[in-house]
Amino acid sequence: MSQGKIVGGFVAPHPPHLVYGENPPQNEARSEGGWEPLRWAYERARKSLEEMKPDVLLVHSPHWQTLVGHHFLGVPHLEGKSVDPIFSNLFRYKFSLDVDVELAEACCQEAAAMGLTTKMMRNPKFRVDYGTITTLHMIRPQWDIPIVGISANNSPYYLSVDEGVEQMDTLGVATRKAIEKSGKRAVLLASNTFSHWHFHEEPDVPEDMSREHPQSYEGYKWDMKMIELMRQGNLKEVMRLFPEWVEEAFAEVKSGAFPWMLSAMGYPEIPAELHGYGTVIGTGNAVMEWNLEKAEARDAAVA
């Protein structure tokens, strides 16, 4: 068996509005569209993902929040109807997904060996959170690639941002080790928005884009600054500024998906590709890609 590897990673935010705007058959709610630039960004990301030919997608979602440790979906097949508790008018989605339980168990064991509290979720009636489902639908609507679903441990909120990041860093290293031993080609998905300041009232027509813009100019400026650093490949500076970004932009990256993904990829100093940026109820959302395999090929060609 050849060594497995992480071929790429995406920041893949999960506002259910994007599914609602697309009107896929799985979603009961119907729209007139909306949030097109972000949905088109996901179209570009879908093409990249197709070229990566992954065996498995790993997604870390803030909307499966766990108090005691880091949990992994551990049931081979899960299906049902996911209704978003906050945006139930927009997201009522029939999902059916296959879990790569073998890899999930390996990630769980590696993380435990590195000192984290971990657990496998074995209840077949478990309701998969809407963050996981939205991210997976937006990046791969065919649902034909097995997944590993990882919870967001509450440590960044319960302890401190620094302690939370430390745990996500460890979780990322454990994830990488498990993938390398698996022999599989894996793509990582960090399911989170950036600036999370948002409006508190919904327009009568949710997809009325005349009402959509950044809720906070400060949050927008933070997002642009961080995206630019990512585009330059300067992840050292991104992580140095991370606590300030979280604090001043109320950034959802605090929940752990983003540092987990960067750690798993080894904080690659390569330019990230921005597929697109847009707001959803005022929050900042970027679809971004780190294509590790392409960067490796470029480096090899230069050498």
Partner: peptide, 25 residues
């Protein structure tokens, strides 16, 4: 939790099974 508007449960009858996201075991 709600973040937009104040929500009220308006379904006349809700049935089913629920699994807690933390204490599923």
């Amino acid at each position: 939790f709600a973040v937009l508007d104040q929500l009220w449960q308006a379904r006349p009858h809700l049935t089913g099974e629920h699994v807690d996201e933390n204490w599923y075991e």
